[in-house]
């Protein structure tokens, strides 16, 4: 170098040339300065060689080895304000329903005749509904193709007998239950 060169490439200018985002002053300078041109060429070779270095993989089974030493994070149960509100509403609702049922039961025990008079038509209705449902279920079972599996189950006598027996017992129990509910209350001995 004969004269001091205050305008050699700065680090940023060299980067810009290597990145391809050439600064005008830099490219003009490089064109006329052998020192900087050599620098750019050598740097580019180094950068290109670095860029094509192949990645290196760890030995097979790396992931399971790591996983064996990791404890999976268990998230804390987060009770949000909204969830808390919803939970409170459920509790209040359940309490109200419970209170209504208990109140109704208490009233029915102290006024049995009146309660029965109220309940009789409803219970008769239930009996009717039960019979209709049974008929509908039987008809469905016989006719609908999606009950093939159930029909197969009933086709073998060994399996059909306990099933039919259980259904008959259930029906009989329901009838007995209804009769009892509809029976006249036994007068209290003290009356």
């Amino acid at each position: 170098m004969n004269a001091p060169e205050p305008h050699h490439l700065t680090a940023d200018e060299l980067d810009a040339i290597l990145d391809g985002t050439i600064v005008e002053r830099a490219s003009v300078h490089v064109a006329g300065c052998t020192v900087c041109r050599t620098m750019v060429e050598l740097d580019r070779r180094v950068v290109d060689a670095l860029a094509i270095l192949p990645p290196v993989d760890p030995a097979p089974g790396f992931s399971p080895r790591v996983m064996a030493r990791v404890s999976i994070h268990s998230p804390p149960v987060q009770v949000t304000v909204r969830a808390l509100g919803a939970r409170r509403r459920v509790v209040v609702g359940a309490a109200l329903v419970g209170a209504a049922v208990a109140g109704g039961f208490a009233w029915a025990t102290s006024n049995p005749a009146e309660a029965l008079a109220w309940a009789e038509p409803a219970l008769q209705g239930i009996g009717q509904t039960l019979w209709t449902s049974l008929q509908a279920a039987a008809a469905n079972m016989v006719e609908q193709p999606w009950f093939d599996g159930t029909r197969d189950l009933l086709a073998a006598p060994a399996r059909a007998i306990p099933v039919i027996g259980a259904a008959a017992a259930l029906y009989a129990a329901a009838l007995v239950g209804l009769r009892r509910l509809l029976a006249e209350p036994v007068p209290d001995a003290r009356w």
């Binding site: 050699h8 490439l9 700065t10 680090a11 020192v35 050599t38 620098m39």
Partner: peptide
Amino acid sequence: AQTADAVEATTLQI
């Protein structure tokens, strides 16, 4: 240090 210094230094070595 700026690259200009390094330029000089490197060029002297290469």
